[in-house]
């Protein structure tokens, strides 16, 4: 009787083993979380170790300003041709994916019925889920011949004899087997869902009160969409653009298979020729080095230097997107 309160108190305390078990599980789970940081540390260490060895053999200035990339034959390591290849594909795919993705996002967020959204959203997600080898294969075997069927194409935009303007003919030459155009098209298709889903989130986050205010002032749906909702969601849309571009920069198999392995400096002033010619991106150069037999020394380390450059570019873009997105989050919460 007298020790009843003590009993009750003890029964409320946890068994010592349970306490230790709790602590053990907590630590185990924290350890798995820390492991994800180790992945990043591992990436940075793995890349920087080899990359620094490379840059001590080949000066970084020569690497970043060199205009010839021929690691296997001439042992010249100028990254500019590869950067230009990456740039061509990125610009080409961005031209396709950014407007289309934004249009899809506006449609899904502002116009589509629930039923249409339920069908179209998963269908768009499939575009990002198809393995990139299959995109590369489709670009090489189906897209290139399909487009080449209507090429070469030339149109005289400014006929001779017109005062002031110089004569100008628009020429799109026929495509090589490996070309930047079909690679850009498939990479563009691949990154549409990235733009559309993140932009749609941003558009849906715009509060309805803004839309209703717009309608109350007599605006049409077109006005509300283009002059109120899209400007309010600009930062989210920009973030989606940056992420999509970063994905296009890092894309590998599709460009390896469709764009070939011949590094080129860009053609000026006939910019369109760049699309018809074969070129090589940074990622493709890495694949080429990795699949070449028994390479040692500097060439092998050049792969890590390229990886480091690529990692740096995409990291900067991701941080940029995150910063832009954080601003947008603060606006409406």
């Amino acid at each position: 009787m007298s020790n009843e309160p003590g009993d009750r108190k003890r029964s409320l305390q946890r068994n010592g083993f349970v306490v230790r078990k709790e602590r053990f599980y907590g630590r185990l789970i924290a350890a798995t979380a820390v492991l994800t940081i180790l992945v990043t540390v591992g990436i940075i260490l793995a890349l920087s170790g080899r990359a620094l060895t490379f840059w001590s053999a080949v000066s970084p200035i020569a690497f970043f300003t060199g205009t010839e990339w021929s690691p296997i034959i001439n042992e010249t390591y100028g990254v500019l041709p590869l950067l230009s290849g990456t740039l061509i594909v990125t610009v080409g795919s961005a031209l396709i994916a950014l407007p289309i993705g934004l249009g899809a996002a506006i449609y899904l967020s502002e116009y589509a019925s629930n039923r249409a959204r339920g069908v179209l959203k998963p269908a768009l997600e499939i575009l990002a889920g198809v393995p990139t080898v299959i995109y590369g294969y489709m670009a090489l075997v189906y897209v290139t011949p399909l487009i080449d069927g209507v090429l070469p194409f030339s149109a005289q935009l400014v006929p001779p004899g017109v005062p002031v303007l110089p004569e100008f003919t628009f020429v799109m030459p026929s495509l090589r087997t490996f070309n930047a155009l079909s690679a850009s098209i498939v990479v563009g298709i691949m990154i549409i869902p990235m733009v559309s889903s993140i932009s749609e989130d941003a558009l849906s986050a715009v509060p309805d009160s803004l839309r209703e205010a717009g309608y109350g002032l007599g605006s049409t749906k077109f006005d509300v969409s283009t002059k109120i909702v899209v400007p309010s969601a600009t930062s989210g849309i920009v973030a989606s653009y940056v992420l999509a571009i970063s994905r296009a920069i890092g894309e590998t198999m599709a460009v390896v298979m469709a764009m070939g392995m011949s590094p080129q400096m860009p053609y000026f002033p006939n910019v369109l020729r760049n699309l018809a010619e074969s070129s090589q991106t940074m990622t493709a150069a890495m694949v080429q080095i990795a699949s070449a037999d028994s390479l040692g020394g500097v060439t092998y380390e050049a792969m890590f230097a390229l990886g480091m450059t690529l990692f740096g570019i995409t990291l900067i873009m991701n941080v940029l997107a995150e910063l832009v997105r954080r601003r947008f989050r603060e606006t409406y919460q």
């Binding site: 793995a46 890349l47 992420l243 590998t252 990622t283 990886g307 690529l310 990692f311 995409t314």
Partner: peptide, 9 residues
């Protein structure tokens, strides 16, 4: 957001 080739490295 890290490209898959970098994971290969």
């Amino acid at each position: 957001g890290v490209p898959s080739v970098v994971y290969g490295l």
